[in-house]
């Protein structure tokens, strides 16, 4: 489902200086697998998610997701790929605070100009799935951290993608809400989705729902 082949990612600091975020990474994640990328801040785990979601391109190497070589995709195709294949739950949720819950959730559908009925059906599915139907009309900025995370997960699932990527999903949650997120992961796994979680939260280590843990340090898989 996801393959990283000899991937190197460098970030330019200035003209003469660059930082190696990923150093010759090789990784394969199978369909339906739940994988936790663990490591300290700056280890490179978020960069892996970013490459898998086609949010950035590797400096060298190949990223293949759902049989598509996304590391070579032009920008517009990368956008289509993200919309159709990936659901990304960002660390800071990346919601638009001045929009309502439902407006945030349907944002990925806006460019594809679906029928209103189709949009409604998709919206109701995720509102129900993540228990936020009662908050649908509220502005996101007025929600608690846990509720905002649910909105972010609902938005990531609105297109029913095959792959869910979550970057430090529990970084802003208390332990109760973190457990609630683990439950959601279980539900998504039951639906057959491939899930990759980048985290340094010990809560995810040794969990039944997690199939594999991969330790990342200084841009390398240990």
């Amino acid at each position: 489902m996801i393959r990283l082949i000899d991937v190197v990612k460098k970030y330019e600091v200035n003209q003469n200086e660059s930082v190696i975020a990923l150093d010759n990474i090789n990784l394969e994640i199978k369909k339906g697998e739940v994988v936790v990328l663990r490591g300290s801040s700056g280890s490179g785990k978020s960069t892996i998610l970013s490459l898998v979601a086609a949010l950035s391109k590797p400096t060298s190497g190949e990223v293949v997701v759902a049989d598509e070589r996304i590391s070579k995709l032009p920008d517009s195709f990368a956008s289509d790929f993200r919309r159709n294949t990936i659901g990304f739950v960002f660390q800071k949720y990346n919601l638009i605070p001045t929009l309502s819950v439902e407006e945030n959730i349907i944002l990925p559908l806006v460019p594809i100009n679906l029928d209103a009925k189709e949009i409604k059906a998709k919206l109701e599915r995720v509102l129900g799935m993540f228990h936020i139907a009662h908050k649908a009309k509220q502005l996101v900025k007025n929600l608690s951290g846990g509720e905002q995370q649910r909105v972010a997960i609902a938005r990531a699932n609105i297109n029913n993608p095959q792959i869910i990527l979550a970057d430090e999903p529990t970084a802003n949650l208390d332990s109760k809400l973190s457990l609630s997120f683990v439950e959601i992961v279980g539900e998504l796994k039951a639906e057959g989705k491939t899930i990759v979680i980048a985290t340094h939260d010990p809560l995810f280590f040794g969990l039944d729902v997690v199939d594999r843990e991969i330790e990342i340090s200084q841009g390398k898989i240990l």
């Binding site: 920008d75 956008s79 993200r82 919309r83 990304f88 638009i96 806006v110 938005r155 297109n159």
Partner: peptide, 16 residues
């Protein structure tokens, strides 16, 4: 800028 980044991250094309 952030809003544009979010829109792109969730699947909006540059032309959208």
């Amino acid at each position: 800028k952030r809003e544009i980044g979010i829109l792109k991250a969730i699947g909006w094309r540059v032309d959208d």
